[in-house]
């Protein structure tokens, strides 16, 4: 590409001023761009995009009322009350750390819904602190655990026999943890 080289030379031979100007413009452009991207990502993170709230945030009122959100926790033992004449059911979700809230749901519960089981609910939080669930998610019991619930699960069972991989290198244990939760 000799022509390209010549063109470059020509451009270089011109006075420095426009080139400098251009470089300055470029730098400002890039820097403002990066700053704006960072700002946007921070804004987005603030929005809690997967809309997941653990029990303590639901109880403490950090979760918005009247908006569709998701919450999760363990089904408290002996808390499931079924209506005699309808599909309505009420149960309590807990993180086993003293935070619990009631969930109202009307519909068929998933097969894997059990007491002591981890559950995700999607719905709206009512003024009185009761979660009106539109969906109860407990499918694919054995294959997948969202990271936010995995933390919950680990802290939730003090009697769990195994500690999380003390000797495994950090990266690998993450991989495996993620893997256990997935396939």
């Amino acid at each position: 590409m000799p022509t390209l080289e010549i063109a470059k030379e020509n451009r270089d031979r011109h006075p420095m001023n426009p080139k400098r100007k251009q470089r300055l413009f470029l730098m400002t452009f890039l820097l403002t761009g990066v700053a704006a991207i960072v700002a946007l990502i921070l804004l987005a993170l603030e929005e809690n995009m997967n809309m997941f709230y653990p029990p303590d945030e639901v109880v403490s009122g950090q979760a918005p009322i009247g908006e569709t959100i998701r919450a999760g926790g363990m089904v408290l033992e002996q808390s499931v009350v079924r209506a005699a004449d309808s599909l309505a059911v009420r149960f309590v979700l807990t993180d086993r750390q003293g935070h619990e809230f009631a969930v109202d749901y009307s519909g068929i519960l998933p097969d894997l819904f059990r007491e002591g089981q981890g559950i995700l609910v999607q719905g709206k939080l009512a003024e009185d602190g009761v979660f009106l669930a539109q969906e109860v998610l407990a499918k694919h019991d054995e294959n997948y655990m969202p990271p936010e619930l995995m933390d919950l699960n680990m802290t939730a069972e003090p009697a769990a026999p195994a500690k999380p991989l003390p000797q495994a290198p950090e990266k690998l244990s993450n991989q495996m943890g993620a893997f256990v939760s997935d396939s």
Partner: peptide, 9 residues
């Protein structure tokens, strides 16, 4: 649909 416990451990 999300859930947990691959292994209880």
């Amino acid at each position: 649909p999300a859930s947990f416990t691959l292994t209880e451990k």
